[in-house]
Write a protein that binds this DNA or RNA. Structure first.
Lengths: 116, 116
DNA sequence: GAAATATGTCGTAAATATACGACATAATAT
DNA sequence: ATATTATGTCGTATATTTACGACATATTTC
């Protein structure tokens, strides 16, 4: 009965954690950066740019696609991936809200600790 | 020889992924929000606020502490945790840079796909 | 139609993460 | 000194992630 107490948290917390998890591997960060750098939507030869096997890259792509952060359209033989910039903007706002909340309080300084 | 190809990515990508990973579980998001909500730095009775055992919460706290996102000072019997707001601000900027980069290109719209 | 090409899916091995009970430790209280 | 309290650490069971080779599928190209 171990594991998966995730449902006990708020939907907001779960949502933030889900997106954070999508960014929690350098390969997925790199994929998003790569897609952003290309004006045209590049197909799965993304794999050629990364130090990972094609299969593994495909797996990472599916994870990003599952959250709808990226989209893929079949174009003949190749698949054309692109960023869902609308969603990414929403996610950015979500993170910003979280960080503003977290950095609002003075709390403890950089080197010293707190004084409770 | 499987696993851990992480070193092959840039330090920037690894750093972003590391922080994202720290936020990749709702419990850790909740912990940060809880610390932010309290003016005083609350000790480990954070566990009482979360639907998890004390041990598990302690584990999550250690993960956040390992990245220096939170700090803990021993105050007699209790440990006084607090947010490292300075670092959180830096992390916020880092995420903002990433998201701005990712949302800069027009790419594909919300419902339609890309046109390569 | 057959060969080549681009992808996705499946199976699987190894590494990590999650969750918690049982102990160990240290400090306060009695 | 002893009991109580607050924490951390260890061990361990289970779930998930990461990584990749082997196949299956679909689409061009010849």
């Amino acid at each position: 009965m171990t594991y998966a107490k995730i449902a006990a948290f708020t939907e907001e917390q779960q949502q933030l954690a889900r997106v954070a998890k999508a960014l929690a591997h350098p390969a997925r960060v790199a994929i998003i950066q790569f897609l952003a750098s290309k004006q045209t939507c590049i197909s799965g030869d993304i794999a050629a740019e990364l130090p990972l096997s094609r299969t593994t890259v495909s797996q990472h792509l599916q994870e990003l696609k599952a959250l709808d952060l990226i989209r893929g359209e079949i174009d003949g033989l190749t698949v054309c991936y692109c960023l869902n910039t609308e969603l990414l903007k929403q996610v950015h706002q979500q993170f910003t809200g979280f960080f503003l909340e977290a950095t609002a309080s003075p709390a403890c300084g950089p080197a010293d600790a707190c004084a409770c």
